[in-house]
Computed example of a mutant assay.
Amino acid sequence: MFAGVDVSYAGDRLAAAVVVLDAALGVVDRVVVKGRPAFGYVPGLFAFRELPAVLEAFERLTVRPDVVVCDGQGRAHPRRFGLACHLGVLLDLPSFGVGKTRLVGVAADPTPARGSASPLVDRGEVVGALLRTRDGVKPVYVSAGHRMDLDTACALTLRLTPSFRLPETTRIADRLSRDALL
């Protein structure tokens, strides 16, 4: 089972959503926690701002997922420890991040075919991959978090993107968190 995590903001309020999908990508459980950020925005420390609400959402789940997929980064972070790393360690679950934007590193544009990838390299180290999840569509940034290697993270990202650019886990969690703030 795959847990997807996303957090939305409206002014000084936030909504942290966790959705759990089964192997067929059907929703098994979902939780939304509303609150306020733990502190103001500090570049590079975004995970600490969201973690209290996200962890509370995980505590309320009725099932334990096998893998955590974050809307953000894992090792592809200036400190090599983004939200996917934090959550994986704190929950003791394999985790990885799939981000829409790059925080660090450089990567060549992958070929236009679904499944093509290029290494994301920062300071001489491969920290992630630029992965094409749809033919001819803008790629995403995938990075390992905790107890997960990059090849597995990329393979799972492709498994979780049967129809859209972003993983179903991220798409559903994003919708839940946004709707909670309406």
Rank of each mutant, 00 (worst) to 15 (best):
F39V: 03
G35T: 03
F164W: 14
L103T: 04
V19H: 07
Q73L: 08
L181M: 07
R49F: 01
R114E: 09
V142T: 06
R175H: 08
S143M: 14
Q73E: 15
V18I: 06
G26W: 03
G128A: 01
F48G: 12
L51C: 10
V19G: 08
A173D: 12
V32A: 06
S118K: 03
A180S: 13
P78M: 13
D122I: 00
G74Q: 14
V54P: 02
L103C: 08
A10P: 00
Q73S: 13
S116G: 01
P110K: 02
T133K: 11
L181H: 13
D22R: 04
V104P: 01
V89Y: 08
A129I: 00
A180F: 02
R178P: 10
L176F: 05
E56L: 08
A23G: 11
L45H: 09
A76N: 09
R132C: 02
V19I: 04
V31G: 12
G44S: 10
R132K: 06
F164R: 15
E56H: 07
A155Q: 15
V28L: 14
G145H: 07
C85F: 02
A17M: 04
V54K: 13
A24I: 00
P110L: 01
D12Q: 15
L160I: 08
A47F: 02
A76Y: 05
R64K: 15
D149K: 09
S143C: 13
E125S: 09
L21A: 10
G35W: 05
T133V: 02
R49K: 11
R159E: 15
E59V: 00
L176A: 12
R123G: 07
V7W: 06
G72S: 10
H77V: 10
D109S: 13
A47E: 10
P110R: 02
P94W: 03
G72R: 10
A57T: 03
A108N: 06
L176G: 05
R114Y: 02
V63A: 11
C154N: 09
D109P: 04
V106N: 10
H146D: 15
V106P: 01
V142Q: 11
V7A: 07
K34I: 05
A15E: 11
S163K: 15
T101N: 14
V18E: 12
L131P: 00
R49Y: 04
P94H: 10
V140Y: 04
T62I: 01
R171H: 07
G82S: 10
D6C: 02
D29R: 12
G11M: 06
F164K: 15
P65L: 10
F96E: 14
A108D: 15
V20T: 07
G4F: 00
A129S: 09
T161R: 14
L90T: 06
T152C: 07
G99C: 12
L91K: 12
A3L: 00
